[in-house]
Amino acid sequence: LGLPKMEVFQEYYGLPPPPGAIGPFLRLNPGDIVELTKAEAEQNWWEGRNTSTNEIGWFPCNRVKPY
C-alpha cells in the first residue's frame, strides 16, 4: 500500500510561496519522488514528503506528475 508517489518534472524553490499559513514549502528538484501526505484534486497546493531529502512541506501540484 503506502502513500501515492509523484515525480517532480519542474523545480520549486518556494516561489510562489504556499498561500496563507498552511505550512512550509517543500523544495523540489526534477526527478525527485514525492510521497503525497495531503492532496485533494480540487486544490492547487499539496503536501508531501520528498523522498530525496525526507523533508515534508507544501508545493504547487502542477510541478509533479504520476510516478
Rank of each mutant, 00 (worst) to 15 (best):
L1D: 04
L1S: 15
G2T: 13
G2S: 14
G2V: 12
P4H: 14
P4C: 14
P4W: 13
P4T: 15
K5E: 13
K5V: 14
M6E: 03
E7G: 03
V8T: 06
V8K: 00
F9P: 04
F9W: 15
F9N: 10
F9C: 15
F9V: 08
Q10A: 05
Q10C: 05
Q10S: 06
Q10E: 14
E11R: 06
E11T: 12
Y12T: 01
Y12L: 03
Y13D: 10
Y13C: 10
Y13I: 09
Y13R: 12
Y13F: 10
Y13A: 15
G14T: 01
G14L: 01
G14S: 00
G14M: 04
L15Y: 09
L15I: 08
P16L: 00
P16Y: 00
P17F: 06
P17I: 08
P17A: 11
P18Y: 07
P18M: 01
P18I: 02
P19Q: 04
G20Y: 04
G20W: 04
A21R: 11
I22Y: 14
I22A: 11
I22T: 14
G23S: 08
G23E: 15
P24E: 09
P24F: 09
P24A: 08
F25E: 06
L26T: 03
L26S: 03
R27Q: 14
R27K: 13
L28A: 03
L28T: 00
L28K: 03
L28E: 03
L28V: 09
N29G: 14
N29V: 06
P30Y: 12
G31M: 05
G31N: 05
D32R: 02
D32Y: 00
D32H: 04
D32C: 03
I33S: 05
V34W: 02
V34Q: 01
V34D: 01
L36Y: 00
L36I: 10
L36M: 06
T37C: 08
T37M: 12
K38I: 07
K38A: 09
K38Y: 11
K38V: 12
A39C: 14
E40Y: 05
E40G: 12
A41P: 11
A41K: 13
A41C: 14
A41L: 13
A41E: 14
A41T: 08
E42V: 14
E42L: 10
E42D: 13
E42F: 08
Q43R: 11
N44Y: 11
N44V: 11
N44C: 07
W45H: 10
W45K: 01
W46M: 10
W46F: 05
W46Y: 14
W46D: 00
W46T: 04
W46H: 06
W46G: 03
E47D: 00
E47Q: 14
E47R: 10
E47L: 12
E47A: 08
E47F: 10
G48R: 01
G48I: 01
G48Q: 02
G48W: 02
R49L: 10
R49V: 08
R49Y: 13
R49P: 00
N50D: 03
N50R: 03
N50F: 00
N50Y: 02
N50I: 02
T51M: 12
T51I: 15
S52I: 09
S52Y: 09
S52H: 05
S52E: 12
N54G: 14
N54P: 01
N54V: 02
N54D: 14
E55P: 03
E55C: 09
I56K: 07
I56A: 11
I56S: 07
W58S: 04
F59M: 02
F59S: 02
F59P: 03
P60Q: 00
P60N: 01
P60I: 00
P60E: 03
P60R: 02
C61P: 06
C61Q: 14
N62Y: 05
N62F: 04
R63C: 09
R63Y: 15
V64P: 01
K65T: 08
K65F: 05
K65A: 06
P66M: 07
P66F: 15
P66K: 07
Y67D: 11
Y67Q: 15
Y67P: 11
Y67H: 13
